[in-house]
Design a protein around this nucleic acid. Structure first.
Lengths: 351, 351
DNA sequence: TTGTACGCGTTATCAC
DNA sequence: GTGATAACGCGTACAA
């Protein structure tokens, strides 16, 4: 192979192959515009030259379309990769994108305009996963490109969601047996505090921006009311991040109270894993002495000991649907996915 | 806001603001070229117009640089998101990229040239994670852009790796106690078969492309030899994918042999989790009746019951280093990261 | 400090 | 099937 210092672009390739630029372009983009034999020759020879297809920037500039799809994560990318639920969602998204031959660009709504606004001009469509933090949503939605909002609703953008309140109510109704039950909640990002702490009365009445946690809490409260169980604010722990370590702090506080709770409702499986761990270290038997439920149904929920009773929210399928909907105009404005109560060992016998 | 149908580009913005295109461009790119007051006015007013920065395609075409970094995964994206080790690696990568204000594009070396070669022209640099499957590596390395190879070595591209053989030997030496031990191996993608199966004698001598699995196996074999333990091919199970389900098939075969193995060496924690599960379902006590070790040290290894003895390979840190090295020219050709034996419950008492 | 003009690599549109 | 040409939106040297 001859090491030329000429830039290897379409024009140069066409010169070297002795054909026109239009023909090379057509070979890559419009098979019907030339004979199959010529096309194969061009594809083969340009690959040998080291030219593997049109430059994305130039093509996208010219065509106004890049075949790149962005997933805009509510958290930082780094955090999202550590979250099993987000990972499952991305798994579903990328499954569909690879079928549609689209590339995946990962953005975060936490980044300021200056840091990624330029990148936001490239994708043909945007999947917002979780309620965005800054003004990224407004910026991007003004572009007029296809958007889908997952796990939140905003404006009249097509959305994909679950009924968090109903699902939380169902799992709470399942695990709470009698009115004598003492219930604690380990809640995911419910207030602005960056520390693990108990709620206060005012927190329950405040306008809550964290709509997922808020709705799940409403479901828990509703179930408690139906069961005749009291669930005061000081038995609800706020955690600033969805990690087992955060849940451990909350669980340690909750499980050293006398009398000890008999049920802990966790807003995610990841939090429940932390609670499980603290229970073990305190030699509290689950489910005999303490029943625990989670939310999400991550793979580990079915592997841990005892296995977790939880709500399956089909995160992978959610990703698939989001990706499919992005470019289908004929889908409903607001889709609601089914959730399913998954009864396992941590909530005791099923009777 | 007036809904104009004019395309909102830099030229249009400059017209609306009554300044030149150069000034708007400088406002975004070269603060020193105009007064701070004017810059602020331009930034503010163009945001109000709905212009949030230069178009990536055009800027990248013009500057020959996009501030986009690609991670090229050896597996499909979908699979990679389901793999805790890959997720940790991506976590580390994205942590550094966000500091450097780079965007993350995810590619797969499994995709044919036609499916993503165009996208490959955009990134400024490439992190190859795992030995690439097709010709993507050759394609991309010819581009002359910065590349780093993670978990494999190829040509004279800078690489980041661990000593798989030494680490595997260490964990095997730890868990194998005496020459009477019966040892089985659950191996990750060692041969071409897409089914769970035992190895045959010829497999051990064959040239093996799956260098990670091959090296770990060498470490196991070496440890067995040092301990005076026999490890015949039929006690080594191949799994085509790194999932607990695959390991369960292998484990079921291994654990129903008489006499039953006393030690199972697993090439990943994910596989070990599957083995653990089968042991439980067969009422085989771990570590009393069976000792199990994994590899990787994923978060779940420290949460499962019993917790897994394994090799910590610092996947998050590996991602950080890979991302940092990509643009530093002053790093060694082939970096080797330390691994650490992590002793937990699944390998029995530590004496 | 500001404006102008050119080119980055590609594709669509012609007339040939 | 070819060849020329005009955009696509932007960055920057250079002239003012």
């Amino acid at each position: 192979m001859s090491a030329s210092n000429k830039p290897l672009n379409l024009k140069e390739v066409s010169r070297l192959l002795g054909v026109s630029t239009a023909t090379v372009s057509n070979a890559f983009n419009r098979p019907d515009q030339l004979s199959e034999a010529l096309r194969q020759r061009i594809l083969k020879e340009s690959a040998e030259l080291g030219y593997h297809g049109p430059n994305l920037a130039a093509r996208s500039l010219r065509k106004g379309k890049s075949d790149v799809v962005a997933v805009v994560l509510a958290d930082t990318l780094s955090y999202s990769f550590s979250d099993p639920v987000a990972s499952q969602f991305l798994q579903g998204v990328s499954e569909v994108l690879s079928h549609k031959k689209k590339q995946l660009l990962l953005l975060s709504s936490r980044l300021a305009s200056k840091e990624q606004s330029s990148a936001e001009s490239l994708p043909d469509g945007f999947i917002f996963y979780g309620a965005p933090k800054g003004d990224a949503f407004e910026r991007i939605s003004r572009s007029g490109k296809p958007i889908i909002a997952v796990d939140f609703e905003q404006g009249k953008v097509p959305s994909l969601n679950i009924n968090n309140q109903a699902a939380a109510r169902a799992v709470a109704l399942h695990v709470i047996r009698e009115s004598e039950e003492r219930v604690a909640v380990v809640s995911l990002r419910l207030i602005a505090s960056d520390r693990v702490c108990r709620l206060e009365k005012a927190d329950l009445q405040a306008e809550c921006k964290e709509v997922i946690a808020y709705n799940r809490l409403q479901g828990y409260l509703q179930a408690c009311q139906e069961k005749g169980v009291d669930l005061p604010p000081h038995m609800i722990w706020h955690t600033p991040m969805n990690t087992p370590e955060m849940a451990e702090k909350a669980a340690y506080e909750a499980l050293t109270i006398t009398p000890r709770p008999t049920v802990i409702l966790c807003m995610s499986d990841v939090l429940a894993l932390g609670v499980l761990r603290v229970a073990q270290s305190l030699h509290i038997r689950v489910p005999e002495d303490l029943r625990i439920v989670g939310f999400d149904d991550i793979p580990e929920a079915n592997r841990c000991t005892p296995s977790l009773t939880t709500v399956c929210q089909q995160s992978i399928e959610k990703g698939r649907i989001a990706a499919r909907c992005l470019f289908d105009s004929d889908n409903p404005q607001a889709q609601l996915m089914e959730t399913r109560l998954v009864v396992r060992r941590s909530s005791g016998d099923t009777h």
